[in-house]
């Protein structure tokens, strides 16, 4: 595929300009050491998550990385517990719909704010941005009261509605649409497309890298969201994964090994999403590089 060739070509040039290997000096050593420590710090929580998921309950407060008696009993238990599937499906549905809505709505609003001149557009933009400064913790109570009065408690809609559009996403998309030349839009206008068609067929394909980044961001954000889903849901069936996992165990004892097992399984979709969309990001960068 052409894109693969482009990437290969550019990585080849990158590699070829690399200076020939020199004996390591002090500066390089320090850099490596820092990177190494950073890498360890990043990997440790994940390593402990997997390690804990392979331990028996009596061993979980023993901080050894390698379990004494590794077991896959936790995985069998979690996967055989019917509730886990519900939570998984709930999370998939909610994160997917929210992601799609964000990609569409954030970019529609971002595009409008970027490419149309109309009175009050600056004020609207500032108003949207200012909502970024209000923390979720402050918003959950009004959201809850609203959901209660509209009868949205304990429903998908109730979990999703606050996040179907985000100020951050709108801002991100607006900034990216600035890179789409006005000529592209005017040319399409002369060719007889209406504004919605221009947005969809001309502008959107040109900001794919930003859309991919936004998709990853929103999906992960919703996949790991905890406070609001915890508050708005009542029945176990409506729980999302993080809420459901935290309910493992009883009042006296948190079943860490089960939580870690569920967490380990639940990282799989996020990896998939990341791997799928990250390709667009790389491709976008290559495309942008060739444009000039």
């Amino acid at each position: 595929m052409a894109v693969a060739e482009e990437i290969r070509a550019s990585s080849d040039t990158l590699l070829s300009v690399k200076s020939p290997r020199k004996p390591a000096n002090m500066g390089q050593f320090i850099r490596w050491a820092l990177l190494f420590i950073g890498g360890i710090l990043m990997v440790m929580p994940i390593a402990f998550m997997i390690s804990t998921s392979l331990k028996w309950p009596h061993e979980i407060y023993n901080l050894r990385l390698i379990p004494e008696e590794p077991t896959i009993e936790n995985y069998t238990f979690v996967l055989e517990d019917g509730r886990f599937y519900w939570w998984f499906v709930n999370s998939i549905i909610i994160a997917t719909i929210t992601t799609i809505c964000n990609v569409l709505f954030d970019s529609l609003v971002g595009y409008t704010l970027c490419k149309f001149k109309f009175p009050g557009r600056y004020i609207i933009f500032i108003a949207i941005l200012s909502t970024l400064m209000i923390p979720t913790e402050m918003l959950v109570i009004p959201w809850y009261l609203m959901s209660q009065q509209f009868g949205w408690l304990d429903s998908y809609w109730g979990i999703m509605f606050p996040g179907l559009m985000t100020a951050f996403g709108t801002f991100l998309m607006k900034q990216f649409f600035e890179t789409v030349p006005d000529d592209f839009i005017e040319a399409a206008r002369i060719d007889g497309l209406n504004e919605l068609q221009i947005w969809w067929t001309v502008a959107m394909p040109l900001v794919k890298p930003a859309l991919a980044a936004l998709a990853i961001f929103v999906f992960l954000g919703n996949w790991t969201a905890f406070i609001w889903p915890l508050i708005v849901t009542n029945s176990t069936d409506m729980y999302t994964l993080p809420v459901g996992l935290s309910s493992f165990g009883d009042e006296a004892d948190v079943a860490w090994e089960l939580i870690m097992t569920g967490a380990a399984i639940s990282t799989i979709p996020t990896l998939v999403v990341f791997l799928v969309f990250q390709r667009f990001i790389i491709r976008g960068v290559v495309m942008a590089g060739l444009k000039g």
Partner: peptide, 16 residues
């Protein structure tokens, strides 16, 4: 613009 029976070529081509 589309109803004016014109076509325009832009400085930076405006090809997609």
């Amino acid at each position: 613009p589309k109803d004016r029976d014109i076509a325009m070529v832009f400085q930076n081509y405006a090809i997609y």
